[in-house]
Amino acid sequence: MGSADVIVVMGVAGTGKTTIGPLVADALGVPYAEGDDFHPPANIAKMSAGVPLDDADRGPWLDAIGAWAHGRAGHGGVVSCSALKRAYRDRLRAAAPGVLFLHLAGDRALIEARMAERKGHFMPTALLDSQFATLEPLGPDEAGVAVDVSGTPQEIADRAVTALRRRAQAA
């Protein structure tokens, strides 16, 4: 893993994508982009109302993130994106073939407790069930690593950077 890689920090809501992503980007010396910023206003309104997004809603969002990742190819970057389904990751890979996925994975009870503590976020904990139902973990043929989200943000970020570096050495 070099600083020229583009890493997509993925996982269900509440795993810490927005917290861990910038820490990983900082450790790698590359820019960070917040995936939620790529959502069109209609998606945010839907999620704020407690309505899960469907694939039609996610298409333009995934394409916008894919375009950002494509533009960072060879320069490096970290972007957060739930990327819960393989089809979504395939769409991101089609736009930016070299992306690596960092799956922040954790126990549902821990994630729900963390979400309950968050203020001002548009993803209510009620949508967590739909997120877990949708989640398709990384396949063995997908470029990326899964990292447990227990511990402090810095511990998680350190674990992530170590796992990404190990993966690069093994490749």
Rank of each mutant, 00 (worst) to 15 (best):
D5I: 09
V6A: 03
I7R: 06
V8Y: 01
V9S: 01
M10N: 02
M10Q: 04
M10K: 07
G16Y: 10
G16P: 04
T19S: 11
G21F: 14
G21I: 12
L23H: 04
A25T: 02
D26W: 07
A27T: 04
L28S: 03
P31Y: 11
P31D: 09
Y32Q: 02
A33V: 10
E34F: 10
G35F: 08
G35N: 11
F38W: 02
P41H: 14
P41T: 14
A42G: 09
A45V: 08
M47A: 05
S48R: 15
L53E: 11
L53H: 09
D55L: 13
D55A: 13
D57A: 13
R58W: 04
D63L: 08
A64E: 08
I65H: 02
G66T: 14
A67Q: 10
G71T: 12
R72N: 06
G74Y: 14
G74M: 12
G74P: 08
G74F: 15
H75D: 10
G77A: 05
S80I: 10
S80A: 08
S82N: 06
K85S: 06
R86H: 04
Y88L: 07
R91I: 04
L92Y: 00
A94V: 15
P97Q: 08
G98S: 07
F101G: 00
L102H: 03
H103T: 01
L104E: 02
L104R: 05
A105P: 00
G106T: 09
L110R: 11
E112S: 15
A113D: 15
E117W: 06
H121N: 03
L127S: 03
F132S: 11
E136A: 12
P137K: 07
P140G: 00
D141W: 02
V145Q: 06
V147H: 07
E155L: 09
E155R: 09
A160H: 12
A160S: 15
T162V: 09
T162H: 13
L164K: 06
R166Y: 02
R167P: 04
A168T: 03
Q169V: 01
A170Y: 01
A170P: 01
A171P: 03
A171S: 12
